[in-house]
């Protein structure tokens, strides 16, 4: 379905000032584009609804994840399945161009032969290079640390994909059907794991984490890294944890244990 720019609502979770600014710009762009130019296929319903009901995004929070590799089995991909279902990602049987927000990576030490398996997704970097390079500001980081793409301003230049060290982003290579109202997507734009922002803003946790504890190994823990009393903070304080490619200094919000 098509919607006009000036009516469009930003992706969930803008802070108010930014939202105001962007909608002003979007309105201006809408006027400039009118008449007849439609920006297509993005939302079905008011995608900001979740945020309106929640409290403002606060920088006192930093959402993150801790993944315990000892509990993550190589054969299990419940997190991946849950993500696809939650966000309506269905493949076209073309693995090279199909979107993958989360994937299982097997890591083997060539010297010892020891092997581990881990889920890999957008690491929600504190210093995200994808945001730095994005020419239009479509890639942005919320105050609570969640990195998102604004589907209305992404021009599909793919520079963020070049810049992301974790290969966390996918470009939408073909038309989409059956989109989920809470996870707007659009052909010709780039997307990645949203940390299930719609659930988080409603007080829940990401679908992958839920699936992992329900049917998987219970390897994933979601929480607020800034709250010293949260379980994730306490575990991060207690045990040795790793960030992948910590040498790049991006401070990912996804931490791994027993890597």
């Amino acid at each position: 379905m098509s919607i006009k720019t000036e009516k469009s609502t930003p992706t969930p979770g803008f802070d108010p000032v930014r939202r105001k600014f962007l909608s002003a710009v979007a309105a201006a762009a809408g006027v400039a584009l009118a008449p007849g130019v439609m920006l297509y296929g993005i939302t079905k319903s008011n995608s900001a609804a979740a945020r309106v009901s929640g409290s403002a995004v606060s920088s006192n929070v930093r959402w993150g994840m801790l993944i315990d590799l000892n509990r993550c089995d190589s054969g299990c991909d419940d997190c991946v399945t849950a993500c696809s279902k939650e966000n309506g990602l269905q493949g076209h049987g073309r693995p090279a161009t199909d979107a993958q927000w989360i994937r299982k990576v097997d890591v083997t030490n060539p010297q010892t032969g020891a092997s581990q398996s881990l889920p890999m997704m957008c690491q929600h970097c504190a210093d995200p290079p994808c945001v730095d390079v994005c020419p239009t500001g479509a890639s942005f980081k919320r105050a609570d640390g969640i990195v998102l793409v604004n589907k209305h301003t992404c021009i599909g230049c793919r520079y963020c994909m070049m810049a992301c060290p974790y290969k966390a982003r996918s470009f939408i290579h073909e038309s989409l059907e059956d989109q989920k109202p809470h996870a707007p997507r659009g052909k010709g734009t780039v997307e990645s794991c949203t940390l299930c922002v719609h659930r988080v803003d409603a007080g829940g946790q990401p679908a992958c984490v839920e699936a992992c504890s329900d049917t998987g190994g219970g390897a994933m823990l979601f929480g607020d890294l800034k709250d010293p009393d949260s379980e994730i903070s306490q575990r991060v304080a207690k045990y040795a944890t790793q960030q992948i490619r910590a040498d790049l200094g991006l401070d990912p919000g996804v931490r791994y244990r027993n890597l």
Binding site: V25, L39, C157, G188
Partner: peptide
């Protein structure tokens, strides 16, 4: 070659 060449105007009005 952009994914959304029709949004050139967006690129011209939103700068990072």
């Amino acid at each position: 070659d952009l994914g959304r060449p029709d949004r050139l105007i967006v690129a011209m009005t939103n700068y990072n």
